[in-house]
Design a protein around this nucleic acid. Sequence first.
DNA 1: GCTAATATAATAGTAATACTATCATAAACA
DNA 2: TGTTTATGATAGTATTACTATTATATTAGC
Lengths: 223, 223
Amino acid sequence: MNVLNITVSHKLYHKNPEETDLGKRILSKSIELMEQMGYEQLTFKKIATAIESTEASVYRYFQNKHQLLAYLINWYWGWLEVKLAQEFIVLNSPENKLKRAIQLLVSPMDQDARIPHINEATLQRIVVAEYPKIYLTKEVDVENKEGYFHGYNRICDILSLIALQINPAYRFPHSLFSTIISAAQSQQFFVKHLPRLSDAKSGCEDIIDFLTELTLKTIKTDE
Amino acid sequence: MNVLNITVSHKLYHKNPEETDLGKRILSKSIELMEQMGYEQLTFKKIATAIESTEASVYRYFQNKHQLLAYLINWYWGWLEVKLAQEFIVLNSPENKLKRAIQLLVSPMDQDARIPHINEATLQRIVVAEYPKIYLTKEVDVENKEGYFHGYNRICDILSLIALQINPAYRFPHSLFSTIISAAQSQQFFVKHLPRLSDAKSGCEDIIDFLTELTLKTIKTDE
DNA sequence: GCTAATATAATAGTAATACTATCATAAACA
DNA sequence: TGTTTATGATAGTATTACTATTATATTAGC
């Protein structure tokens, strides 16, 4: 059986949760609970109780809730990068690659049977609902140096390079893709909760159309 | 003297802070402290101590820190709407209106002498650093009904209508402007703290160019 | 099979936070 | 003058976010 391992920087945990059974149970239950109750309401005590362990044990894996969220979100970006690489094997034009990347950002994920302790679809909903909380803090500069945002940076770089293949003169590829990725998240949230901020109907097709059109029109050379 | 009053929905406070001296001092000091220490580190106790009042008194104005943030951010959007209306008086083409709106979103604000207890420039920095925190919560649906996001919705509607004057067939004006407004905030943050996510140099010109070009290219009719 | 290291559980404790409640006092208002 | 209203002063509670200590069970090395 094909084993897949997403590597997350060791700055994002105290003890690697992927290495032990308890660690995996913490990840699995954290994802479930954070989606249910949201980041603010989640506590290490609640995670510990739910997996029939103790608060102190959870603290052995993550220094605090913020680090746990950063871990999960970096795991997501790492996993998305793997998916992108797989998909790009059979896609030849940069335009098709960007289109497919946008689809992956917005479409619900399938469960990967090789990684049973991570529910990718639920994790994706966590990213939609909580992502900006990992960088909108006063510790952002320190944490940036420690690689807290590495996964996001990489995705943004990858897509920027593809955009430059379409138009090498385009001035703002990183700004564009940080905008597109963040819009991919927030439009999903708006459709569900703040519909006046979106024109999309539920289901992801409208969001994909919006983002694809926006991306391609923006990159295209001015005549 | 010309008195200007930005009205914020009464759901966003327990007792109207604009009506008393203590209320205004709370607003003024909250803005100062939140910018200094960030939303997470700010407490009502700290505000109270700084204005030589008591925690209980601050609670008489705002039910909690979240409501205070929502109040401040709605005040900002209300104020931006007033600014936009003023500027649009002398602008005739929809294209120029959108360009000017983007400039206002990104450029540092001047202090309005008519409202000495609100430092607009500092408030703008708070919006950049904290905005998504008011809607990325489990209470978003309830709070949306109570008008917590009214100010943002209105700005988004106004800009959408202008875009439709340029191209009445454009399908996603609300999605576009919620994206643009949020990108205006996050690009300012990225330039300062996560520069790999942006191509802009410090100073706001690059961000303005990026957003203006993005907006106009996207709205334009397909030939 | 014994010893040592390691992982986890069990329990306790602390400082800070996010409130709520009560009462006193001072100002303003009718 | 009497009454409402705003604020201050003080106290108290439940929860959170940790830290520390000790006991026990498992595993690894020899």
